[in-house]
Design a protein around this nucleic acid. Structure first.
Length: 795
DNA sequence: AGCACGCCGACT
DNA sequence: GTCGGCGTGCTC
């Protein structure tokens, strides 16, 4: 009786989701489990792989003998069985290769670089060759130095002159420090009176007992060497975990919970002891103290011996959340997000894996943090679209979290001031339990939102981008020494640049979009492919000199503010000004300290900011997000307005919000200005129902991207026909739409074609799409096929 | 992805 | 004849 293992190999294959079978040799049997990382021979070379299944009674076929697993890399295994199970679920549900799913669960730095080396076993007739191979050499090295062919090398191998060994290198190395301590009684050590450095070192060692070699100044390291030679000291390697920078931490006493918070806390605590998974939706207005509830809940989990994961929507928000948790839980917290260095990521992951921490705070991929006894996952700002992974595997974090928690009967806690339509609907139909916080902790009312109809301003003869009321409000606010935030969801100077005589507009040569002007209009840049061009003096088509900037971006807004309010000190915050990782924090500090009094920004200013002196928020043009050609644009607009409005009046001064729009009658704008989530939800849900959009149906987006327009069109047609044929015999109603031409048909010089599928929640569609093996429709290397299940947008 | 095989043209 | 160009096919 023999054992075999199913293994996913680290090798991109045409047959996207194939596993390969290998024998488990008896001497490795004790170390191989589901989730083990192994090295296997694969088509004349060695590759890395993961064990995803073990077959106990494998009968080896004489005709087709399986190869054996060569090495096991870690024991206990790098992934546990539960995570492998989750990877299989991911692979099935998001039409992704099992390998890509496993990869997304591990830090990239864990990857190995394999290379083969040759060394001498017994002497050949060529003495130069013998000398050369006295130490291990790469094949390329040998071929460069000797007139040998690969065949001749292989003959040497066969005849036993040389041998091949596998060299395994990790991309990221674990970090160690040298710690030195005295190895003798201090009285036994005599240092010459002239040796100043040695005396300093001895004194330091006497005072501090242990010293870290790399922290000593260079001259003292010389003295360390002398001591080492004399045997006065011993040194020891100590493992350190690389830590990301954190904001300044203060000792913080837990805040008293108010009545609402207390009640919610009670319900969360109850769920810890339940033998099933509960999903809670915590709907709490800005400033209602959601984080304090998270902190208390996590404390309770830890007291029960469980681990917790806290997810935040983007990297810039992690430092805030991390410091809140570190203040309360000290070094029980690990941080995981893509802004860390490879080494930091690796070490933070290792700390979790080794059970050294109980809490992980991070971006979406932290949902896979390798805790053994996961008690809860908290998803803060659950409605954010950043929780959708846009690369393979294209998962929805909320659904992955739920699936993962089912393995340990853990609790899923979704928090938001403006829950996604899907989540709120789920709470209405009883899938999630709703928890509500509608009192602000400081009892301050939410700021008033005044809508200004920009059409009327135009009729009144006001052609500027500021309505009368916004203009005077900015003046007043600045006059009182208070601060203003202006929100505009478009970076750059102007949206389009056109010729006033012939109507020519500047377009990107690679994408079907207009170029956005930057740097006072001197440069034209494509926001999709970064193509840029300096603005010519005249129209390329008719040579007219009358070029005009149309539409408004943050850059021009800044210029206009400067013109209208000469005393204003302005900071701009958008993708262009946020070049480095630290700039976010810099802007935050500068504005907080009052070094500027106007903050202009795109949606990145909508979240997390807490400035006590901001009393006015201006939304320059709410229509910008509203007119996005996507079924979620109303929802996004509502959420953005609510969030941005929440930046005003956070401390002692009352705040106000002025919202400028050309469509004040739109329900997103109407309801958000009243903080009417329920009204918005009802209108939006009715719309979704009538048009058959989520949550009433599920969506899939199949996108064909090709350098050749004709190939792309042909491939999408072929897929459509095949799908149509497969769906014929299915009783459930699955709706195929397309092929659809997307809003931007050409991006980075590639043509795009889409098929949209609407399918029910209980579905066999996933089976069908997985069996279809779309890769085989791929006719050439210039055509790509992407499948996105539950996409964040249909664009 | 890599690695070998094979089939064709350019050269000793 | 044979060296090497890269198109094609396979990987338990």
């Amino acid at each position: 009786m023999e054992k075999a293992a199913k293994i996913v190999v680290d090798c991109p294959l045409r047959d996207i989701d194939k596993t390969f079978d290998y024998m488990i040799p008896p001497h490795l049997d004790a170390f191989i489990e589901i989730g083990s990382r192994v090295i296997v021979p694969f088509n004349r070379r060695m590759v890395q792989g993961f064990v995803v299944d073990i077959e106990e009674n494998y009968i080896n076929n004489e005709k087709f003998k399986l190869k054996e697993i060569d090495k096991v890399l870690e024991f206990p295994s790098i992934l546990d069985e539960k995570l492998v199970k989750l990877a299989k679920w991911l692979s099935f549900n998001y039409n992704s290769s099992l390998f890509s799913c496993i990869q997304s669960m591990l830090p990239r730095g864990i990857k190995l670089q394999l290379s083969e080396q040759y060394s001498l076993v017994r002497s050949t007739l060529d003495s130069d060759f013998n000398d050369f191979l006295s130490k291990p050499r790469q094949l390329g090295d040998i071929l460069d130095n000797f007139q040998l062919t690969k065949d001749q090398i292989n003959r040497y191998l066969l005849e036993g002159y040389i041998k091949k060994t596998l060299n395994i290198k990790t991309v990221v190395k674990e970090k160690y420090l040298q710690e030195i301590t005295l190895d003798r009684d201090i009285d036994e050590i005599t240092v010459p009176a002239t040796a100043l450095r040695q005396q300093q070192l001895l004194e330091l060692l006497d005072n501090q007992q242990r010293l870290i070699l790399s922290e000593l100044p260079a001259p003292l390291r010389g003295a360390v060497k002398v001591f080492q030679e004399k045997g006065y000291i011993k040194s020891k390697k100590i493992k350190v975990y690389r830590e990301p920078d954190t904001l300044n931490l203060n000792e913080v006493q837990p805040k008293e919970l108010n009545c609402q918070q207390q009640k919610i806390f009670g319900q969360l605590v109850e769920s810890i002891y339940e033998e099933s998974t509960t999903t809670f939706l915590l709907k709490g207005i800005t400033g209602s103290g959601k984080t304090e509830v998270y902190l208390r809940f996590v404390k309770e989990l830890i007291n029960n011996g469980k681990d917790a994961i806290i997810l935040v929507p983007e990297i810039s928000l992690t430092p805030m959340m991390v410091s809140r948790f570190k203040e309360r839980f000290g070094d029980m917290v690990a941080v995981l997000h893509s802004g860390l260095t490879e080494g930091q990521k690796f070490d933070q992951w290792l700390k979790i894996k080794e059970g050294k921490v109980k809490i992980a705070v991070g971006a979406r991929s932290a949902v896979f943090a390798p805790f053994k006894n996961l008690g809860a996952i908290i998803i803060d700002e659950e409605h954010e679209s950043t929780y959708k992974q846009e690369e393979q595997p294209r998962y929805v974090t909320r659904d992955v979290a739920k699936k993962r928690l089912e393995q340990t009967n853990g609790t899923l806690l979704l928090g938001s001031a403006t829950p996604s339509i899907e989540s709120y609907y789920n709470s209405k139909i009883g899938n999630y339990k709703i928890l509500e916080l509608n009192e602000r902790a400081n009892n301050k009312p939410l700021p008033n939102i005044d809508i200004v109809d920009m059409r009327e301003e135009l009729i009144k003869g006001n052609k500027s981008i500021f309505s009368h009321s916004l203009h005077s409000a900015i003046g007043e606010t600045l006059g009182k020494g208070e601060q203003v935030i202006l929100f505009l969801n478009k970076r750059g100077f102007s949206a389009t640049t056109l010729c006033r005589e012939c109507g020519f507009t500047f377009k990107c040569p690679n994408c079907d979009v207009n170029l956005t002007s930057h740097h006072q209009g001197n440069f034209l840049i494509c926001h999709y492919c970064n193509y840029s061009l300096s603005l010519p003096n005249s129209c390329p088509k008719c040579s007219s000199k009358h070029l005009r900037f149309n539409g408004l971006g943050t850059e021009r807004l800044k210029e206009d503010i400067q013109k209208n309010f000469p005393g204003a000190k302005i900071i701009r915050m958008d993708n262009d000004t946020m070049s480095t990782a630290s700039s976010y924090n810099e802007v935050y500090q500068n504005f907080l300290e009052g070094k500027a009094n106007v903050l202009i920004g795109t949606q990145m200013i909508a979240k997390g900011f807490d400035f006590p002196k901001v009393t006015l928020v201006g939304i320059i043009l709410a229509d910008m997000t509203l007119n996005f050609p996507d079924y979620k644009s109303s929802e996004k607009t509502f959420q953005l307005i609510t969030q941005v409005a929440g930046r005003a009046g956070r401390a002692d001064y009352p705040g106000r919000v002025i919202l400028q729009t050309y469509s004040p009658e739109h329900y997103s704008i109407r309801t958000s200005s009243q903080y009417g989530y329920e009204e918005f939800y009802n209108e939006e849900l009715a719309m979704r129902r009538s048009l058959a959009y989520p949550p009433f149906t599920r969506l899939a987006k199949i996108e064909v991207v090709s350098k050749s327009e004709n190939t792309g069109r042909a491939v999408v047609r072929e897929i459509y026909n095949k799908l149509e044929e497969k769906l014929e015999n299915i009783p459930e109603s699955i709706q195929l739409l397309g092929p659809v031409v997307p809003a931007i048909p050409r991006l980075k010089n590639k043509f795009r074609f889409m098929i949209i599928v609407k399918f029910p929640h209980k579905t066999s569609f996933l089976n069908i799409i997985n069996q279809l093996n779309l890769i085989k429709f791929k006719s050439d290397i210039i055509t790509n096929i992407k499948v996105d299940i539950d996409p964040a947008t249909l664009m």
